[in-house]
Design a protein around this nucleic acid. Structure first.
Lengths: 223, 223
DNA sequence: GATAGTTTCATACAACTGTTTGAATTGCAA
DNA sequence: TTGCAATTCAAACAGTTGTATGAAACTATC
């Protein structure tokens, strides 16, 4: 293959348009116009519209997943096979939140695209998300090693709630800003991460003997 | 107007089809075929496809909101203007969860429709959801009265996390079941409510003097 | 039972969709 | 330069979509 110029122009244009206007009302003709290429180029290079969307989403989500696993692995190695639950949860939700939130004006196209993907949920993306379960099982494993006394069901619920808080905050960031009249600062990503991790940790450790200091209020124990 | 037969047949057919197959691939022709009425009837009775969807969603969500406010009002009256935070949170997430989860075999069309609406987020529904902020402010008010020492920002985050856990659990109930290999019982709605309320309460009260007994583990304090 | 208003119907419309086609163009190797 | 494959292009295709139309059927009132 030659220079990939057309191919990457399509990818860039598609990501930008989907990020700005959503999957619902962006057509292939919009994309090729934005990219300055011919309509048939999409099917030539990607096979179909759905495969184009899938490639966009896969690219971004493997980046996030790789970062998650990198943090998880580093934490478990440092702890000799067992990482503190806070660190595991941070590895789980940190990369996702950092990838999607942050100062509005410098929020990348990729970030805005991933927010869209989490809001609209179109078939090709849903298919990919369904394969994410194996990835999550690695975190379940780490969490069980970290909290061996905790029941398996509680682990699943804790994981579910951690993901819930992260994803919902991303999806509804605009509404939270409006509801709180700007008082909730979603641009301070590390504060958001700390809040989510703090609550999820409490969910997973409440009612047990705590080897560590009691959980603090919402957030504040970020760094 | 005569008997409303056509109108309600359309509503019922549309809700059923949307619940089963999603908004993405149900056309007006599918709906009128299922309802046994003429294609033009939709535009005659509802004006447009979007207005039909909006009417379906509004009907169900005002039911939920009414139930929420009923529980909230009852709780505050009983407490002389101040309700315990657990009860407020239960009023917030209980009706939603009860409306969407529950034993699969008896899960109503309305419930499955609302799950769809929370997954797919099509324009007419998004427009309605955006008007939900005033409704949420009533809960913010109640929460501030219940926890007068808590900062306003913490209240907003607590509300955000409570809604996050409820909605995400609804949206991803299938995935949680698969991930936990059926060990997380999503048919026991009251257990789910108790878990969400418990964690949200911890998020809102951690690190403070507690007039009540310390929060128990995940759930169990349901009723 | 004639009339006026409402509701239903078959049908056409106009626009838009993703995809395909086959010819033109390009780039590179021999 | 020649030849061949990869790429680009304009154009058309085939199908679907929500909506509009105007006539027909119905309903209730007088």
């Amino acid at each position: 293959m030659a220079s990939d110029h057309t191919r990457s122009a399509i990818l860039a244009a598609a990501e930008r348009l989907y990020a700005d206007r959503g999957f619902g009302d962006v057509t292939l003709r919009d994309i090729v116009a934005e990219a300055g290429v011919n309509l048939a180029a999409v099917n030539y290079h990607f096979g179909s519209k759905d495969e184009l969307i899938a490639e966009l989403f896969v690219t971004r989500s493997v980046q996030t997943n790789r970062e998650r696993l990198r943090e998880l692995k580093a934490a478990e190695e440092e702890g000799g096979g067992r990482a503190p639950i806070e660190v595991i949860l941070r590895a789980l939700v940190g990369p996702t939140l950092r990838g999607c939130l942050g100062p509005e004006n410098q929020r990348s196209t990729a970030a805005r695209f991933m927010i869209r993907a989490s809001i609209e949920s179109v078939p090709p993306i849903r298919r990919i998300k369904n394969r994410e379960i194996d990835h999550l099982r690695k975190f379940v494993g780490a969490m069980r090693r970290s909290l061996p006394d905790r029941s398996e069901v509680d682990i699943y619920w804790g994981l579910n709630f951690a993901l819930a808080m992260a994803h919902h905050t991303i999806r509804e960031s605009e509404r939270l800003t409006k509801l709180s009249e700007g008082k909730c600062d979603l641009d301070d990503v590390e504060d958001v991460v700390a809040r989510v991790v703090s609550v999820a940790t409490m969910a997973l450790t409440a009612g047990r003997t705590e080897p560590k200091a009691p959980a603090r209020a919402l957030a504040r124990d970020a760094r």
